[in-house]
Simulated assay, not measured.
Amino acid sequence: MSQKILVIADHHDGQLLDATGRAVTCAADIGGDIDVLVLAHDGQAIADEAAKLAGIANVHLVNNAANEHAVAAILAPQIVAFAQNGGYSHVLGPNTTFGKDLMPRVAALADVAMVTDIMAVHGPYEFDRPIYAGNAITTVQAPDAQMLVASVRCASYGAAEKTGSAAVAAATVEAELPTHTRFVGLEQAKSDRPDLQTAPKVISGGRGVGSEENFRIVYDFADKIGAAVGASRAAVDAGYVPNDMQVGQTGKIISPELYMCFGISGAIQHLAGIKDAGTIVAINKDPEAPIFELADIGLVGDLFEIIPALDAAVS
């Protein structure tokens, strides 16, 4: 039986996010026809960008004033109605903040089981996913007699190439939208630095940085090499940086080509968030720090001496 897969587009400020392309790559591993659903207020530019993703058959654009803000309670009924009417066998979303909020609600409304954090595909309904903070991998078999709702572990997949030319079609969805949930406002950190979850280079600091003021040395070095900036939970809890910078099991799961961490000991929760990184470079004063067990390159030393030396070397 051929699969018919619907990927939910993750977008922000009128731009398609890289996570959507990663979910498309996972969908290609499952096999079958792949469509993308864009739910927006005015999403033509987003849909046109999604149409460039390789392997996409169609992009369906649902423009609705109710979709101006990505409120899961508003989007989920539309996704369920569209997927059921379209006869989709799979509905996939990225495991970003957007997807983690949305996809469980989709599964609940559709009254089906959900598979979270797909990291490898063995068959249309058989997948690997991480458990125990990423320290073990389990293979799960989902029922094939019903629609499968799943989230894709973005760190495990590269984004689909933008070599496609899929058709974009306007669509309408007949779904009863809830009135008990409404958008009130958005508070978010803004930065000119690369996005932490998709950047090819990430520089992180931990408790060893010492203070919010001292974190400036990490920011400056990251800016020098064009890297995103992350942090350990200990640094976040200490108030050095905002929590949207947290990397780890309870923060962002990332897979940069280069990950450099300064003053991070390597708690298991942090290691769970960086295991898929290409090259891990760790700098810590403690030679027994657990981070060195995972690092490809380890340097025992004072970060306040090493960062200026690295800065000078790349000047």
Rank of each mutant, 00 (worst) to 15 (best):
I306P: 00
S156M: 06
G248Y: 03
K224A: 15
T179Q: 11
S211H: 14
F221H: 08
A313C: 05
K285A: 02
P124D: 12
A167C: 05
L299S: 04
A313W: 02
Y132K: 05
P308K: 04
P194Y: 07
V112Q: 08
F82C: 05
K52F: 02
A282H: 07
A227F: 15
I280T: 05
K52G: 03
V247Y: 08
N95D: 06
L299H: 08
R153V: 05
L294W: 14
E174H: 14
D29N: 08
A312M: 03
F127N: 14
N214W: 11
R105G: 01
V91C: 07
Y125H: 13
T279E: 06
G134T: 02
I5F: 13
V115H: 01
L39V: 08
V236N: 07
D18M: 09
D286W: 04
L258D: 01
A113Y: 04
N214Q: 13
S151R: 14
A272C: 05
L109E: 11
L53C: 11
N58Y: 07
R105K: 09
A27R: 11
L102M: 05
Q249S: 07
P200Q: 10
K285G: 05
T250D: 05
C26H: 08
A72Q: 03
F304K: 10
R207A: 11
T20H: 04
R182H: 08
H60T: 01
Y157S: 04
L294D: 08
L294H: 11
I291F: 03
L75C: 12
V115K: 07
A175Q: 12
F292E: 06
L186G: 12
I34H: 06
A282R: 03
G230E: 08
T181Y: 12
S151W: 03
N214T: 07
H12P: 03
D10E: 15
G123D: 14
R207N: 08
A142S: 07
V62G: 01
A231H: 13
E213S: 13
D33Y: 06
E212N: 12
L310T: 01
L310W: 03
N95Y: 01
R105F: 04
Y132I: 03
A70T: 04
D48C: 05
L17Y: 02
P200L: 05
R182D: 14
A28T: 14
V36W: 00
Q15H: 12
G43E: 01
A66G: 03
I74H: 14
A27E: 13
N284F: 02
S211K: 10
V184E: 15
K4N: 13
L16F: 00
D220E: 15
L17V: 03
D29C: 10
